[in-house]
């Protein structure tokens, strides 16, 4: 976890030499008035990766671009857009990297096969052991 802060250091350090002075985007630090919508937006923001900080979600970052992304997410949710549509829109632009929730694709299927493999392996292991042991 110590290294985590070093990552964070980088996050803070980057703007230290190149910091813009614009005020944050309208919804970067402002919640939506509708609590149900805000909850949706928050859930989505927690699973989008901050492109400037690499190891944080946009919900956990003070980087200006993360703020702009938050604002964009909230505005779109307020306009009635579906969270998954917003995610898809971002993935279309930045690739899978921007989303912490991997999709099932030709590239990522092993991630989703793994639990099945582990389950099969586990049941094989358990059943063999128990058959062996129990069948006295």
């Amino acid at each position: 976890m110590k290294r985590l802060l070093i990552l964070l250091l980088m996050v803070f350090a980057a703007p230290a030499f190149a910091q813009d002075t614009m005020p944050p985007a309208p919804y970067a630090y402002r919640q939506l008035d509708n609590p149900a919508q805000e909850e949706k937006a928050q859930a989505l923001m927690e699973t989008l990766r901050c492109l400037k900080c690499q190891s944080q979600s946009i919900a956990d970052s003070d980087a200006p671009m993360a703020g702009d992304m938050r604002s964009q997410v909230r505005e779109r949710i307020a306009a009635g857009e579906d969270p998954e549509a917003i995610r898809a829109w971002l993935v279309e632009r930045y690739g899978d990297y921007v989303s912490y929730a991997p999709r099932v694709t030709a590239l990522t299927w092993p991630l989703f096969i793994l639990p099945v493999v582990l389950l099969v392996l586990a049941s094989l292991l358990l059943s063999r052991r128990f058959r062996k042991g129990g069948g006295e």
Partner: peptide, 14 residues
């Protein structure tokens, strides 16, 4: 582009 909107639409990250 005051709130990076077009930047985002283009998939630019910096």
């Amino acid at each position: 582009d005051d709130v990076s909107k077009v930047q985002m639409a283009m998939g630019s990250s910096g």
